[in-house]
Amino acid sequence: MTAYTAVLLYAGWMLILALIYAVPRVPQALTGAKPIDSWERNKQPIDAPILQRAKAAHLNCIENFAVFAAVVVVAGLMNRLEAIGSLAAFVLYARIAQSVVHISGTSFVQIFLRATFFLIQILLVLVMVYRLLLG
């Protein structure tokens, strides 16, 4: 997998997460079961907990995507994609694992695993930056 492919798949994963929590809302709004604005920010959550966790997993992806994508783009501009290519896929894998664990629940073990997958991503991107600057 190339670094560019990892960025594209990461973006696709974010879209899938958005659909997981957004699609169930459409029939509820269209049938009048819930008001169309019932999911607006700053309101009490009304979604099932698993959908709330899917939304949170999606927002977590957004928080880190820009940094990951920026590092890959800069590597491309530097003509140094080979320096980070082997790591980019693992950033994606750790992100997907973090999201799946995030959606699955909130036990101590799940939160610990989620944090571990997050730290793996951060460390991998830092190694990518190191390789581009000093490697």
Rank of each mutant, 00 (worst) to 15 (best):
M1D: 04
T2Q: 03
A3D: 02
Y4N: 14
T5Y: 11
A6E: 01
V7C: 08
L8A: 13
L8S: 08
L9K: 11
Y10W: 05
Y10S: 09
A11K: 03
A11E: 05
A11M: 06
G12V: 06
W13A: 13
M14S: 14
M14Y: 00
L15Q: 09
I16H: 04
I16S: 06
I16T: 07
L17Q: 04
A18K: 01
I20M: 12
Y21G: 03
A22K: 08
P27V: 07
P27R: 04
Q28S: 10
Q28W: 05
L30S: 12
L30A: 13
L30Q: 10
T31W: 00
G32I: 05
A33H: 09
K34Y: 10
K34D: 08
I36K: 12
D37Y: 09
D37G: 14
S38R: 13
S38C: 15
S38Y: 14
E40R: 13
E40L: 10
R41C: 02
N42W: 10
K43V: 11
Q44T: 14
P45D: 09
I50H: 14
I50W: 15
L51A: 04
Q52M: 13
R53A: 00
A56Y: 12
A57D: 10
H58S: 05
I62Q: 13
F65I: 06
F65Y: 14
F65A: 11
A66Y: 04
V67E: 02
F68K: 04
F68T: 00
A69P: 01
A69V: 01
V71P: 04
V72F: 04
V72P: 03
V73Q: 00
V73M: 03
G76M: 03
L77G: 15
M78A: 15
N79Y: 04
N79Q: 15
L81M: 09
A83M: 07
A83P: 09
I84W: 00
I84E: 00
G85K: 02
G85R: 06
L87F: 12
L87M: 11
L87V: 09
A88W: 08
A88P: 14
A88C: 07
A89C: 10
F90C: 14
F90N: 14
F90K: 12
F90H: 15
V91S: 02
Y93N: 01
Y93S: 03
Y93M: 09
A94E: 12
A94I: 15
A94H: 15
A97Y: 04
Q98H: 13
Q98V: 04
V100N: 06
V101H: 01
V101F: 03
V101T: 12
H102P: 09
H102D: 07
H102K: 08
H102I: 08
S104E: 06
G105I: 04
T106H: 12
T106D: 13
F108W: 11
I111K: 11
F112E: 07
F112H: 07
T116A: 14
F117L: 05
F118A: 12
Q121V: 07
Q121K: 02
I122V: 15
L124S: 05
L124K: 08
V125E: 01
V125S: 01
L126P: 05
L126Q: 08
M128C: 03
V129H: 00
V129P: 00
Y130F: 10
Y130M: 06
Y130Q: 10
R131Y: 00
R131C: 01
L132R: 04
